[in-house]
Each structure stands twice: as structure tokens, then as C-alpha cells.
Design a protein around this nucleic acid. Structure first.
Lengths: 159, 159
DNA sequence: CCGCTATAGTTGAGGACGCAAGCAATAGTA
DNA sequence: TACTATTGCTTGCGTCCTCAACTATAGCGG
């Protein structure tokens, strides 16, 4: 038991550690570039991107939160910043007055386009210097399995 | 150009998105368990673990920072908490009076052992319900390549 | 129509972290 | 010996995020 604490055991543990370290390194590097080059956080960027891809370039804050993996309050504050910059606007929903849409402005769309040039390039550089095309596809597939709701079954069994 | 903004392109982008999402989901789930069951953050746990594995159960704060992927100030604050709980102590270095070792106490070691039981089990459950043994090894190997200093070559080219 | 519960969103307090600045000790140079 | 650069560490401040509490609307059963 005592020696079990002291060394890596299953490959699951290895994967876990490398996931944390890898994520931290990659996010750190890529976010730094994005901030330095465009004054955007990764979440700023992803938020603009989600809006750009959304129908009529607008989304409910709740849906934005889910996609960005943030809480509702996180989204409120994220959008505060983007609104202040003029990249996002608010719009009311006719059929449900509780909802406030976040709408991508033309400025926001321009900003996204400007940023996407170097950001996507940085991204690709970061990954493609480390992996072959096939490895990237494999990695993406494996990572894609993590979020899936199997989480629920383990979460619900907590108590 | 305008349509390029709108859809996923290279597998690098796919991998990137899945890395962020997967990390967030996994860390969220596992951290929640660790906090609920033992009152420890992932970083708390990893810090105790590093110390337990270190020679004489002690490390310089700088080295701790590097392993945990934190800045020096982050480590100071992390250790503040662990010291307050009595899991870690300070010790001076005879040969270099600038350094203050972080030393795992017996209480800290006990705490780590207590926590490691459920934590490692949770970890393994989380990963092993999603992946086969071979997939886990492959995933660990791939992720292990992310942090490596290839970052330097791309970082230095910023300006 | 009247509660009741659920949902969308905001706000205040607080945690975790990085950055920049600062201090103390060491190492290198002369 | 004195002078400078570097290294280890801490502290103040700002950022980003969560949680808990709150408001406002919606929709349901009676």
C-alpha cells in the first residue's frame, strides 16, 4: 500500500498526468500568442467563433455557456468584455422575455477573421510539429471520448 | 477566407478542441470527487505526491513549480495552504540560504495515502470505462509529447 | 386567476493563478 | 574587496472563473 503511493501504476494514471501537463502547456503557449497578437483569450475567440457559426450569428447565453463549458455567470462576464469592445451586442427574444441573445456584430466578425488567420496557423504549427496527420486524427478521436456522458453515471453515484 | 472561419478544418483543430473539452470534463469530474472526498485540489494532491516521491520527501519550491506547471508565486500560495493544514513544513538549505525546502510531514504522508485510495480508483474508473488498455497507453504516449520543448522553437519566433 | 416550480440571467464574494516588483543570497568578474 | 548579474522566494494587484443568492419570466395544476 505504502509503496503504491510512490510510483506510477496503471496507464490510466499516466494518461491522466499527461493530459493535465499537455493541456497546460498547449493552452499556455497558444493562449499567450492569441493574447499577444490579438488581445483575445481562448474563450473570447471560441465565443466569437460560436456566434459566427450560429444561425443569425446569435445565441442564447445558456447555450453559449454549455458550448464554452462555463457557468452562466462566467458567460455573463465573458460577454461583458466582448460587449465593451463592441464585438457582441444584446438582443431580446420576442417569444421569451427571460432570454437575452448575444449577437455577433460586424466588428466582432472582422475581429474574428483577423484573429483566425494567425490563431489557426499557430494551432496547426503547435500540433503538426509534434504529430503526424494520422496521429492527430487518432488523438482527436481518443480525446473526443472523454467528455461523453459516462461522466454522469460516475457523478450520480457519489452519494 | 470568410467561409474558412466557419468550419473545422485540419485534424489539428479537431485535436485542439477535443483537448480542451476533454480536459475540462475530466478535470471537472475528478477534481470534484477529490475535493468532496478529501478536501484536496488536484494540485494539492499532485504536490503531496511529488514530495512523497522525492528524496527525503522534500523539494525546492522552484522544482515543485516546474513539475506542477505553476509559477513561483503559484507554488508559494499552494504551499501556504498545505502548511496551514500541517501537511507540509519548511526547511532551510544549509548550502544555499536562498532556498526553502517544502517537506512532507508524516501527517501529509498519511493524508496522501488516505486520498490516494479513492483518487486512483476514480481516475482509473474514469479512464478505463472509456478506453482499452492499449488505447490508454497510446493516449498517454501521444499526450506526453505536448509539453516538450518544441514549444521553445515556436515561442522564440514570436518577434 | 393563484400559487409552484423551473429556467434565463445578473451580481457579490471569494478562490486560484499569473505578472511585475521587490528582497535576500549567491556567483562571477575584476 | 567591491560591483553586477542571477537565482529563489514572496507580495500586491489584476484576471478569470465559480458558487450562492437574487430577480424576472414562463408554464403548469388546480
Amino acid at each position: 500500500m505504502s509503496s503504491q503511493v510512490l510510483r506510477a501504476q496503471a496507464p490510466a494514471v499516466e494518461a491522466w498526468i499527461n493530459l493535465i501537463r499537455g493541456h497546460s502547456a498547449a493552452v499556455g503557449a497558444i493562449n499567450a500568442r492569441l493574447v499577444a497578437d490579438h488581445g483575445l483569450t481562448i474563450n473570447d475567440y471560441e465565443c466569437l467563433l460560436l456566434l459566427a457559426r450560429a444561425e443569425e450569428r446569435r445565441m442564447r447565453r445558456v447555450d453559449l455557456a454549455e458550448q464554452l463549458i462555463l457557468t452562466a455567470s462566467g458567460v455573463t462576464r465573458l460577454l461583458d468584455g466582448l460587449e465593451k469592445e463592441g464585438w457582441v451586442d444584446r438582443a431580446n427574444c420576442a417569444s421569451d422575455r427571460r432570454v437575452t441573445y448575444a449577437v455577433l456584430t460586424d466588428d466582432g466578425y472582422s475581429k474574428l477573421q483577423e484573429a483566425s488567420g494567425t490563431h489557426v496557423a499557430d494551432l496547426r504549427t503547435y500540433f503538426e510539429t509534434r504529430y503526424s496527420h494520422d496521429e492527430l486524427e487518432h488523438l482527436a478521436t481518443l480525446l473526443g471520448r472523454l467528455p461523453n456522458d459516462a461522466a454522469d453515471s460516475s457523478d450520480c453515484s457519489v452519494d
